[in-house]
């Protein structure tokens, strides 16, 4: 058993460090979601009305929606490269279970997309005049929420990996599943702004993450097996 666990760890960490290194070599791609986030938030006051009162009241929701869209931006590429060059077949045939490899890949995706978005959100929140007290819950809720969304999005990426223009289908099948995360996350921020305790929302997001960690990796692995071999 110990031997198996050691094997699992070695294989999973190989994929994890490989993906991190690839992300580092593609640093410019890494910035794309952040730039999208920045531009979308910049456009917002120009499209509506720059009064601090209005911006402050819609800031929690807007920051969350834009972050959600930013995580979707490069989601369809998550497994595409591995599918195209045959790495995916190697993942499937490696001794360790596919869902562990999948988990490593999603973890890298979150570390390089979701986490930077969560850390950048407070800066953009200043631009949107988010009232005080909303900054910490914004970061915390986005940290948890982007992790859940990465796991859900990875299922969409796995289901559409064999489709040439999978991006649109991915968006269609993933968006409805994002809904609870958006509702809870945005409410976490707005209830904190209103001066209420927001630990309940954070706990809900944490529970969502726990559930997603249990349900999604096997589902993603199954989806990859189905869509990649035809």
């Amino acid at each position: 058993m110990d031997d198996q666990r050691g094997d699992n760890w070695s294989g999973v960490s190989a994929v994890f460090s490989r993906d991190l290194r690839l992300m580092w070599r593609h640093r410019s791609d890494l910035a794309n979601p952040l730039i999208f986030f920045l531009i979308a938030i910049t456009l917002l006051p120009l499209g509506v009305d720059p009064s601090r009162q209005l911006l402050g009241s819609i800031a929690p929701g807007m920051l969350w929606i834009m972050a959600l869209l930013a995580t979707l931006l490069s989601m369809d590429l998550l497994f595409r490269g591995d599918y195209d060059d045959g790495s995916l077949a190697q993942f499937q045939l490696a001794p360790q279970p596919l869902y562990l490899t999948v988990l490593a890949k999603v973890a890298v995706y979150w570390l390089t997309t979701g986490l930077p978005l969560a850390l950048m959100a407070p800066l953009l929140a200043v631009m949107l005049a988010l009232p005080e007290g909303g900054y910490i819950p914004l970061t915390l809720s986005l940290t948890l929420g982007t992790a859940v969304m990465s796991l859900i999005g990875a299922l969409g990426a796995a289901l559409t990996v064999c489709l040439r223009s999978g991006g649109l289908v991915l968006t269609l099948i993933v968006m409805p599943l994002y809904l609870p995360v958006l509702i809870i996350g945005a409410n976490c921020v707005s209830s904190a702004v209103a001066g209420f305790d927001y630990s309940r929302e954070l706990a809900l997001l944490g529970a969502g993450l726990a559930l997603a960690l249990i349900v999604m990796p096997p589902a993603i692995a199954g989806a990859l097996r189905i869509s990649s071999n035809q």
Partner: peptide, 13 residues
């Protein structure tokens, strides 16, 4: 065949 299984996984999730 793959379409069926993919849809089934999505429906189950």
């Amino acid at each position: 065949d793959a379409a069926d299984k993919a849809c089934a996984i999505l429906a189950l999730v």
